[in-house]
């Protein structure tokens, strides 16, 4: 149990956790606004990774310079994935706005199954290698004694900057304010002239963009993707969102990091095979004993 090993696990967990946090933000934003567990969010993340892969492949084929590929592919992934999120909301959730609570959830499960198989059929059922897009930054890592790989470093930096930007955006812009108002009370927000449909669309777009970013980052970290990666990642991110208190933005970040660290230390010190079991057990335990999470507000049951 040397210190070096501990530090490695710690940073590994932090990397993983920040990806979970990016995806968890999408769950939490949507849940905060329309009270729906967007089951297809994991698939959105998977689509983000796939779009980046395909665009990068295309650019590489056309002989684009290597440095630009990462940025263009990531931007393309973000744009397209946001469009997926927007379209999905319009088709599968908007018509069910006033339906019983379970209807949108079932619709979301259907959407998730649909998107998974859409990618499976349109692309391939096998794992595909993801190109190494991240730049080499060995000179920096030498100082850290290589506890961090280049992709870890990149993931940490990009995701933290993104999360801080998101929090500032929600806190200080008009749109962020409108979002918070809609989350608090949609009817009241509408009475005050906020276009709730617009806000909901924006929420889906922002959530999807974050998921796409997470998808690109993790895919270049792991080196391979397939159509099924969204399910597990989605479940874990959801666990993270619940852990932090669903509906709370700082909660999602906190929950993601906690889950990532917990998983990393379990894999490192206890048993490697059971990290997924740990996540699901954690999810069940939180939902049963503290459904409001760490930072969530307690909700009173209304008749």
């Amino acid at each position: 149990m040397d210190f070096q090993y501990f530090i490695e696990l710690f940073f590994g967990g932090l990397t993983r956790g920040s990806i979970y946090a990016l995806i968890a933000l999408g769950y939490t934003l949507v849940y905060g606004i329309i009270g729906l567990i967007n089951f297809a969010h994991g698939e959105i993340y998977m689509i983000g990774a796939f779009t980046a892969l395909l665009v990068a492949g295309l650019l590489g084929y056309l002989g684009f310079p290597a440095g630009g590929i990462l940025i263009v592919a990531a931007l393309a992934a973000i744009v397209w994935t946001s469009a997926y999120g927007y379209t999905m909301e319009k088709i599968a959730y908007k018509p069910l706005r006033n339906a019983p609570r379970l209807s949108p959830l079932i619709s979301a499960i259907g959407m998730s199954t649909f998107l998974q198989n859409y990618v499976l059929l349109a692309q391939t059922p096998d794992f595909v290698p993801f190109p190494m897009l991240l730049p080499d930054i060995d000179w920096l890592l030498e100082k850290f004694n290589y506890v961090l790989g280049p992709s870890d470093f990149f993931i940490l930096v990009v995701s933290f900057i993104t999360m801080i930007c998101l929090m500032l955006w929600i806190r200080y812009t008009r749109m962020g304010k409108a979002m918070r108002a809609t989350a608090q009370n949609r009817t009241m927000a509408m009475l005050l002239g906020i276009d709730a449909n617009h806000i909901i669309s924006v929420t889906f777009i922002v959530g999807s963009a974050l998921a796409a970013l997470g998808g690109v980052l993790i895919a270049s970290h792991m080196g391979q993707i397939n159509f099924g990666i969204g399910f597990l990642a989605g479940m874990k991110a959801f666990t993270a969102a619940v852990l932090g208190g669903i509906g709370s933005v700082p909660g999602a970040v906190l929950g993601g990091l906690t889950l990532g660290l917990a998983e990393s230390f379990t894999t490192g010190y206890v048993a490697g095979n059971y990290e997924d079991v740990l996540a699901f057990c954690l999810l069940i335990l939180i939902l049963i004993f503290r459904p409001d999470g760490i930072l969530g507000k307690h909700q009173v049951q209304k008749v």
Binding site: P95, I106, S107, G110
Partner: peptide, 20 residues
């Protein structure tokens, strides 16, 4: 046969919208 899971997903979405 290949499209079955795709259609299952679609069925769930469409049924919820059109004929819950």
């Amino acid at each position: 046969a290949d499209y079955r899971m795709l259609l299952f997903g679609l069925v769930m979405v469409l049924m919820m919208i059109f004929r819950p």
